[in-house]
């Protein structure tokens, strides 16, 4: 990876960093932070599914683990929230490794892998909903105590910058994957596992690496969510909604690309907000927009928004080679 590879990332992150200077309305900042959290969740999914071809339907397992770890460590054990954040991400990595080890070692792939991840997420949701340590169905409230050393801030802009920094860091991480041996091997596994093996790729190790990274990134998004909303319950943390969000953003933005998840999250939630504003108080109207956008993306832009842009720029390119941003 050279400096040239990350210049676009630096530019875009720098540009976004100025947003809170222009918009100060809390509702808009709320929307921006939430969108960034979704983007981060989706970035985690994109590492495993976009680059590795292992389609998880249960990224809630990582998101929830991060969210609960962040909340419980500080509420129950009195650990500093910043430390809890790091442990939360590590816990996500661990859960990723365990799920990966169990399913990849037994050779699960495709829809079987998707089902197993979904099952893990559901089991965790039910457990979190029942156990007393997690607060059961009542969930966990993090005490409001606005101090920077407490990972709580007076202004929402501070949170926006932290979320943006994390998204930026994962953009760089993803770019590194794209340019590294690990990434080449991961993509080889996605394209053809048998051929990858024959070329000396330790497919189990590569897939485990991907799901561990993926788990850590998505768990970091969960930690951020808990820290921002100061409340977690089983249906938020381990709910299917977040698994779906994690999948939708990259598909709409551009699966297996560096910027896909961010572009997708902004497009989906941006459009959702706009329709909510335009259509007034029709409940679920933003979900209808999500659905239509997904249909349109799958039908007309299988490589997502980024793929579409690339096609307009170079119309004669074969679709196969367009996986690289």
């Amino acid at each position: 990876m050279t400096l040239r590879d990350i210049i676009p990332i630096i530019l875009i992150v720098a540009l976004l960093a100025f947003l809170p200077v222009f918009v100060t309305a809390n509702t808009v900042l709320n929307f921006l932070v939430f969108t960034l959290i979704i983007a981060l969740t989706a970035q985690g999914w994109n590492i495993l599914a976009g680059f590795g071809g292992q389609f998880s339907f249960g990224h809630a397992a990582f998101f929830g683990t991060g969210a609960y770890a962040a909340a419980l460590l500080q509420v129950r054990l009195g650990i500093n929230p910043w430390v809890a954040f790091v442990i939360g991400a590590a816990a996500g990595a661990l859960v990723g490794w365990v799920i990966g080890y169990l399913s990849f070692r037994s050779g699960l792939r495709g829809s079987y892998f998707a089902l197993v991840t979904l099952a893990f997420a559901e089991v965790l949701r039910i457990l979190a909903n029942a156990a007393t340590f997690t607060g059961g169905a009542a969930g966990v409230l993090i005490k409001l105590d606005v101090r920077p050393e407490n990972f709580q801030f007076e202004s929402r802009a501070a949170f926006f910058w932290i979320a943006l920094a994390l998204v930026g860091a994962v953009l760089v991480l993803t770019r590194w994957i794209e340019r590294s041996r690990f990434g080449a091997q991961l993509v080889a596994v996605r394209e053809n596992e048998a051929a990858a093996k024959a070329l000396g790729v330790d497919t189990l190790r590569v897939k485990l690496g991907a799901i561990t990274l993926s788990g850590a990134v998505t768990a970091a998004a969960g930690c951020l969510y808990a820290q921002y909303f100061l409340y977690v319950d089983a249906n938020i943390a381990y709910g299917t909604w977040i698994s779906v969000e994690a999948i939708l953003a990259p598909i709409v933005g551009g699966i297996g690309t560096v910027f896909g998840p961010l572009v997708g999250a902004v497009a989906l939630h941006g459009l959702g907000e706009i329709t909510k504003l335009a259509a007034g108080s029709i409940p679920g109207i933003d979900l209808m927009v999500f659905g239509s956008l997904l249909v349109v993306a799958v039908a007309f832009a299988p490589d997502g928004i980024l793929g579409l842009l690339r096609r307009f720029r170079r119309p004669a390119q074969p679709t196969g080679a367009s996986r690289h941003a």
């Binding site: 080449a184 091997q185 993509v187 394209e191 053809n192 051929a195 070329l199 196969g320 080679a321 996986r323």
Partner: peptide
């Protein structure tokens, strides 16, 4: 034949080359 269909020809070969060469 089992090509990595989504990759370019040189990227296909590079997966093999990565076995002995760590740097991209």
């Amino acid at each position: 034949v089992q090509p990595f269909a989504g990759l370019s020809v040189v990227e296909n070969i590079a997966v093999g080359a990565h076995l002995r060469h760590a740097r991209r």
